[in-house]
Amino acid sequence: MRKALIAAALLHGLARAAPHPQDIDFDAVDSAPSATVTGPPITAVEQPVTYNPTTASQSAAAAVTASPLAKRWEFGLFERDGVNDDCAPQPDGYGPKPTSDTTDAFITNTVFALAAVNAPTPNGYNNVFSNLQGSVSLPSYLGLYTLQSYDPLQCQQLCDAADSCYGFNIYFERDPSVNPADACPNPPSFTNIKCTLWGSHVTAQSASNMGGYRDQFQVVIAGSNGYNKKKAPPPYSGYDGPTELGGAIAAPLYTDPTTGAQVDTYIGVKFFRGAFNAGQCAAACDATEDYDRTHATGGSYKPCNFFNAYVLSKNGKALGTYCSLYTQPWDKSYSTNVGQYSGSDYYSVSQSYSYTRSVQDPGVVD
């Protein structure tokens, strides 16, 4: 009974088949709840990864009428007691400090620039931007760690330890040596080396966080590098895959070999903001099929035998997981939709994969 109610909730939240071809459903994207976390707060020095992709997948159907984010983080410093007191010493910064304690000197510091441009690219990753003056801000934020050296290999190890991590950002940040307050509004600075983990690929466009103010103290960023993991999503029980695609599936009408009728195999779409998690698409496919089977008419129903999971980005910044559901499989040659415009905004497709139900459901009630 509970499974049927969850499936009903999913069906309510699922955007059903749109006219051929399967353009990006902007209404489904816009109606998804906004992400409350797009990066670490300006005061944070550590936020370990808490996102659980399995839990998110299991709750995907029920979350349709509430929120697609299975976990919300609570902000705050993760360090020792008293760190938020007025003028309290802040956790030590290990990075080099410019001779002149100004924001301009920090941003233009050649030590930071050389560290960034000469940094090694870890095996299994691509370096997608280097030596920028902004850190990544995306709905797919997973966690933050402060390092003792500017070492992409250490940041890579942290990313590899998190199942849902597909990219990381390492950078120098100008931080206050004490917590700014009325008695110390603009204290001397020190340099933190920060590593943030992301549940999607990062881009130069996503490195849009330029810092901010803590009282009169200005936080700025330098030497920001971004790396993306060459990694496919995991397999899921009951499905064959993943199969890497060139873009999103744009399936034509299918000619039924028995009746000769033109059939639209596209069932609909579900969009989840946050980390890329193809398991949410598998949950949506299963729940939709269960609902359709339970509510079959004339002894037949639309089975969900295939889905396409990908990251949808707006103007180069990843938004979340886009799930397109189908009654039958389509091969890579139909993955032709790499993106499209909505007004002046460009929505692009990346990390696109397909999954095919291992035992195809004929859509007939026994």
Rank of each mutant, 00 (worst) to 15 (best):
T265D: 13
H295Q: 14
T265A: 12
K332N: 09
N225M: 14
C285D: 07
F306C: 08
L319T: 10
Q280Y: 01
G247M: 00
N308D: 14
A232N: 09
D240Y: 06
S313G: 09
K230P: 04
D264A: 04
Q328K: 15
E289F: 13
D331G: 06
A250V: 00
K229H: 05
G246R: 06
D264F: 02
S333K: 08
N315W: 12
G223Q: 09
L245D: 00
G238R: 10
Y291Q: 07
Y236M: 07
A318L: 14
K302C: 04
P234M: 11
A287G: 15
A250H: 00
A248N: 13
P257D: 04
Q262G: 11
G247P: 03
N228Y: 00
V311G: 01
P233E: 01
T294V: 04
G226E: 00
P234D: 12
D292T: 13
A251F: 00
E244N: 10
C285L: 09
K231G: 00
A283C: 06
R293W: 13
G246W: 05
D264M: 07
A261E: 13
W330K: 03
D331M: 03
L245V: 00
S313N: 10
A278Q: 13
A261C: 09
A250R: 00
K230R: 14
A248Y: 05
Q328A: 12
A309E: 09
K229L: 02
I267F: 04
Q328L: 14
V269N: 08
K314I: 03
I267E: 01
P329W: 01
V269T: 15
F271S: 01
T258W: 09
Y266A: 02
G274I: 00
G241I: 08
G279Q: 10
A261W: 01
P257R: 02
N308L: 05
D331A: 05
R273L: 06
P234Q: 13
Q280M: 08
G299W: 05
A283W: 02
L312R: 04
T265L: 08
E289D: 14
S300A: 12
F271C: 01
Q262F: 05
C285G: 09
D290E: 13
N315S: 15
K317T: 15
D240G: 02
K229G: 01
S333Q: 12
K314D: 03
N225G: 11
N225L: 11
C281G: 08
G246E: 08
G238P: 10
S237E: 15
A309M: 06
T327L: 02
S224P: 04
G223I: 08
F306R: 04
D286W: 05
P235S: 14
P242H: 11
G316S: 05
A318R: 11
Q262E: 14
E289T: 15
P252S: 03
Y334I: 03
F307H: 04
C323V: 03
G320S: 08
A248R: 13
K332F: 02
P257M: 05
W330Q: 01
A318N: 14
A309T: 11
C304P: 12
N228S: 00
S237Q: 14
G320M: 06
G246D: 12
F272T: 05
